[in-house]
Every structure is written in C-alpha cells, then in structure tokens.
Simulated scan of single mutants.
Amino acid sequence: MRIRSLIVLPLALAALAACDPEIGGRIDGTEASFGNATMNNTMIQSGDKSYVIDLTQRFAAEVPAMVTFAFNSAALDGSAQAALRKQADFIRQFPELRFRVYGHTDLVGSHAYNKALGMRRAQAVVSYLATQGVSRSRLEAVASFGKTQPLVLTQGPEQRNRRTVTEVSGFVANHPTVLNGKYAEVIFREYVASATPEHGFAAQSTEGSSE
C-alpha cells in the first residue's frame, strides 16, 4: 500500500500542476523533473519539498515574482528593474535558498526562436539580480518554456505572456541552517520590506540582448 502511495503522489502533483493557470509558477516546472522520481519522493518524505512550496508561495505573495518584456526583447525596462530590486531584497535575506528563473514568450514566432528568447530573458533577470548583491551560485536560468506555456491563449502579441517568473527552487546544500534542519526558522523569518542593498552594491541596469 505504501508503494502505491509513493507512485500516486507524484502523479497527483503533476495533475494539479497541469491545472495551474500560471504554469511557470510551480515547483519542478521542467519536463526533466519527471526523471527525478526518487529525488522527489525523498524530498516529500523529508519535508524539503513542502518547505520549498511554502517559500515559493510566500515569495510570490510578498514581492513581484513576474516581470514582463517588450515584444521580441530581453531588455529590462524601469518597471522590471524596480520589481527585480524587490526580488533581490527578499533573496538576500534568505541566504539558505536557491532560486530559478523561467523565461517565457508570447505565441508569435517559431518554437526554437522563442525558446532562445525566453532563455535570454531569464539570463537578463539573473544578471540584474547579481548586480543587486545576489550570488550567481544561488540563481539558475536553466529553464525556458518558450511559447509553450502562455498565461493568455492568443496567437497575437501579448505582454503578459512575455515574462519571466522567479521561484524558490531549493535549499543551499551546505548552508549551516539547512545542515541543522532548521527549516522552520527559514520559513518564518521576517521579511523586511524596506530592506536596502548593502553598501557597495551598484544598482546598475543590466539588460539582456534584444533581437
């Protein structure tokens, strides 16, 4: 009976994720995750996965997790940079966490072109967060959904589809808090919304390549 429950749980999670309107806003959003059944089961049993989901939901509730882009562009405008500065404030206050940035496009253009464009957008976000004092070792821009997961189903240009979504992807493996199993301390740590970059961090503009 226990073996059956371990098999059914990942399937149930996948079914729930398929119903999520913000498909880029879920844990393990890449196809590659389906090959990690042992890892997923271990994380669920240890509690790691539920902690990551809780922290992703908290991150999205407290700071803007999504930024949008102009048509056919990976350049970060002023509003995107302002949102990313808030993301960086949060990320710096939780050094135990790793984050992943998913790049998306609208439905205009070929799949291959849009997948590359989505990746450039994710990389632009990672680069900008790095200028705000976030270590690149805690940031991943390895997943691009291209035009396969639109928020708005339209064949025309749609800004809400031209976006990146930043999520909590896991814990820093060798961080002392994680090694001591103090996950609750991380989850319930207060986020100070007025946090400012430490002295010396340059709030400079970093834009991705546009076509």
Rank of each mutant, 00 (worst) to 15 (best):
M1R: 06
I7H: 04
L11F: 14
A12F: 10
A14S: 14
A14N: 12
A15H: 13
L16V: 08
L16T: 02
A17W: 06
C19Y: 08
P21V: 08
P21E: 06
E22F: 03
G24W: 04
T30L: 05
T30V: 09
T30E: 14
G35S: 09
G35T: 03
M39K: 15
N40E: 07
T42E: 11
M43W: 08
D48R: 03
D48Y: 01
K49C: 03
S50F: 01
I53W: 01
I53E: 05
L55A: 07
Q57E: 12
Q57A: 13
F59C: 05
F59P: 02
F59S: 05
P64G: 05
M66I: 00
M66S: 04
V67Y: 06
F69S: 12
A75M: 11
L76H: 06
A80L: 11
A80S: 15
Q81A: 10
A82Y: 06
R85D: 12
K86C: 02
D89K: 01
F90H: 06
I91H: 04
P95T: 14
P95M: 14
E96Y: 12
E96R: 08
Y102W: 09
G103D: 13
T105N: 03
L107H: 11
V108F: 09
V108P: 02
H111Q: 14
H111C: 06
H111Y: 14
A112R: 02
Y113R: 14
M119R: 09
R120C: 03
R121K: 14
A122G: 14
Q123H: 07
A124H: 04
V125L: 04
V126S: 01
S127E: 07
S127I: 03
Y128F: 08
Y128W: 04
T131L: 11
S135G: 13
S137I: 08
R138K: 09
R138E: 05
A141I: 03
A141T: 05
A143S: 12
S144N: 00
F145Q: 00
G146N: 02
T148N: 06
Q149S: 01
P150E: 03
L151P: 13
L153W: 10
T154S: 13
T154Q: 11
Q155Y: 07
E158I: 09
N161L: 11
R162P: 07
R163T: 07
T166K: 02
S169I: 05
F171R: 00
A173F: 06
L179H: 09
N180W: 10
N180F: 10
N180M: 15
G181P: 09
K182G: 01
E185N: 15
E185A: 14
I187R: 15
E190A: 14
E190N: 07
E190T: 11
Y191T: 08
Y191C: 10
V192E: 12
T196Q: 15
T196L: 13
P197C: 10
E198S: 13
E198T: 12
H199F: 03
H199W: 02
F201A: 09
A202F: 05
A203Y: 07
Q204Y: 02
S210P: 10
